[in-house]
Structures are given as structure tokens and as C-alpha cells.
């Protein structure tokens, strides 16, 4: 905000304090809520890994559902296999490989980043970069087309007299007592 004794400056400072008070109260309540996110110690690490892994493998017979989601018999059998292999000490990647060998690459929820399938990963970031560049160029060109002077009506600008009389009338119309937005 501007320096100097403008009304808005004063206003901003006072309301800033009030905002802070309110915010402190709200924050106290939010901290209590945040505490709900705090603990994850009950679940053994191996089981956490199993859950994470289950979310990346699809149940081959239930369209669109991961092992973690599905209640199909096959899914629960596959979950058991995951648990077993983790207990044997195998890595996440090798367990995924195991299922890919059986059921093909479509068993992975996340498409592999190899071969032609890598396209699925490459296109979005490229598109995002292109969109950002396009956005920048469009905004710049719109900015150029933008009006420089306030009184733009090149053919027939407002004369000083017109300006004064119109501005006065608009202000009196705005001062309609039924409605003042700023209060």
C-alpha cells in the first residue's frame, strides 16, 4: 500500500490486525484438525509397501480397478502373492515384473515409460510448455493491442467540457443512496 497518510493506508492497517485475530482463532482449530493427519506408525512397513504396490497393479479381471480396490477373488489371491513375495524380501520392481510376465504390461496401473508407450508421459509436459508459451504470446499481443490513453475514441474524443459535464452526471448517478458498494 502507499506510504503517506492516505485513508486506505490507515484502513489497511486496522483491518490487518482484525484479520490476524480471526486468523489466529481459525488456525488454532485447524491445528487440531491437522493433528488427525499425524500418525501412521500402526501399520508395519512391509504392509505399507504392500499397499503402495497393490495400488500400482491392476486386477486383470475387474475393469479399471487396482488390486487394492478390487474385491474379486483373484485380486485377493494376487494380494496374497504380493505379501508373500515381499516377505521373501523381493523388491517392488521385481514383483511388478513377475505380474507383467504373467498378465502382460496392461497389469500395471501406470504405463511403463519405455518404447512407444513413453509417449503417454512425454506429450503432457510438452503440451504444457507449448500452452505456456502460447499463453505468453497471446497475452503479449493483447497487451500491444491494448489502449494506451484513457480517452480513446480517436475519431471523436471527449472535449474538456464534455468530460466535465459527463463525469459530474455519472458521479451523481452513482451516488444513488439505495446502493453504495463500498460502504
Amino acid at each position: 500500500m502507499n506510504s503517506g497518510p492516505s485513508p486506505s493506508h490507515d484502513r489497511g492497517r486496522q483491518s490487518g490486525h482484525a484479520a490476524f485475530r480471526w486468523y489466529a482463532r481459525a488456525a488454532a482449530a485447524l491445528i487440531c484438525l491437522a493433528a488427525a493427519c499425524a500418525s501412521q506408525d500402526d501399520v508395519p512397513p512391509l504392509e505399507q509397501r504392500a499397499q503402495a504396490l497393490n495400488r500400482t497393479i491392476m486386477c486383470p479381471v475387474c475393469p479399471g480397478e487396482s488390486l487394492d480396490q478390487s474385491q474379486h477373488v483373484l485380486a485377493s489371491q494376487m494380494r496374497a502373492v504380493v505379501d508373500e513375495k515381499l516377505a521373501e524380501g523381493r523388491s517392488d520392481e521385481s514383483i511388478r515384473e513377475f505380474f507383467v510376465e504373467r498378465y502382460g504390461p496392461s497389469v500395471l496401473m501406470e504405463p511403463p515409460g519405455r518404447g512407444a508407450t513413453a509417449l503417454v508421459w512425454i506429450v503432457p509436459p510438452l503440451g504444457a510448455v507449448a500452452a505456456a508459451a502460447g499463453l505468453f504470446l497471446v497475452l503479449r499481443s493483447m497487451r500491444r493491442a491494448g489502449p494506451a490513453a484513457p480517452n480513446r475514441s480517436p475519431a471523436n474524443p471527449l472535449s474538456d467540457r464534455e468530460r466535465e459535464s459527463y463525469f459530474r452526471r455519472i458521479e451523481s448517478a452513482m451516488a444513488d443512496p439505495g446502493r453504495d458498494e463500498r460502504g
Binding site: R55, M58, G64, V107, M109, P112, V120, W121
Partner: peptide, 11 residues
């Protein structure tokens, strides 16, 4: 490419 892939939640 005649290869079925799944594009699921992680993607």
C-alpha cells in the same frame, strides 16, 4: 502397436 496398456490413477 497392438499392445494393451493401462493408464490408471498413478498417471
Amino acid at each position: 502397436q497392438d499392445e494393451t496398456v493401462t493408464v490408471g490413477a498413478p498417471f
